[in-house]
Amino acid sequence: MACILGAEKPKINYPLFWEYKIILDASTQKREQIDEILKGENYKIDFSRFSNGGKYMSFNVSVFVKDDLHRNEIFERLKAHFKYVL
């Protein structure tokens, strides 16, 4: 089955844990910054890996979100502090 961009929006059954990948600059940013941004949320953080040169490190972050608005709000909060949020 082919994916057609601009077609029907995927159905997401909320509430659920949504996965984000956050990439930090290893020399200036710390994992604790994620904790501070997500204070009050139900979340889990797992270290993923360092980049080949060790300049970046990544984390998998799973956040319990209630709806589309909440999911996007979490993304925007993270994006405001970190260069790469997927």
Rank of each mutant, 00 (worst) to 15 (best):
V61A: 02
S27G: 01
F17Y: 15
F64H: 06
A7Q: 12
A80N: 14
L78F: 07
I34C: 08
S62G: 02
G54Y: 05
S27Y: 13
A80H: 04
I22W: 06
F47V: 04
V63A: 04
S51R: 08
A2E: 15
Q33S: 12
K9E: 15
D68T: 07
T28R: 08
A2V: 12
F59Y: 15
G53P: 05
G6F: 11
V65W: 00
K30R: 15
F50H: 13
Q29N: 12
V65R: 00
M57T: 13
K55Q: 08
D35S: 13
Y84N: 08
C3D: 06
E32K: 03
K39Q: 12
D68L: 08
L69D: 14
I12C: 01
I34Y: 09
V63R: 10
L78Y: 02
Y84H: 11
D25M: 08
K30C: 10
I37E: 13
W18H: 10
F64R: 09
D25G: 00
F47I: 11
I74Q: 05
E32I: 07
I37T: 09
E19W: 00
A26P: 01
F17C: 01
R77N: 13
D25A: 10
N42I: 11
I23P: 04
M1V: 07
V85Q: 11
L86D: 10
S48R: 00
I74P: 01
F64M: 11
F64E: 11
M57S: 09
E32M: 06
M57C: 14
S62K: 14
R31G: 03
I37F: 07
S51W: 08
I45N: 01
K9I: 13
P10F: 09
F50A: 03
S48Q: 07
V63T: 05
K66G: 03
Q29K: 15
H81A: 08
L24I: 15
I12N: 02
S62A: 07
L24N: 07
H70A: 09
H70E: 12
K83T: 12
I34N: 03
A7C: 06
L24A: 01
I22C: 03
K66T: 10
G54E: 09
N60G: 03
V85L: 06
V61Y: 01
S27W: 12
I4C: 05
E76T: 11
K11N: 12
R77Y: 02
I12S: 02
I45E: 04
P15R: 02
G54N: 09
K21E: 12
N72M: 12
F82Y: 06
E8M: 13
R77V: 01
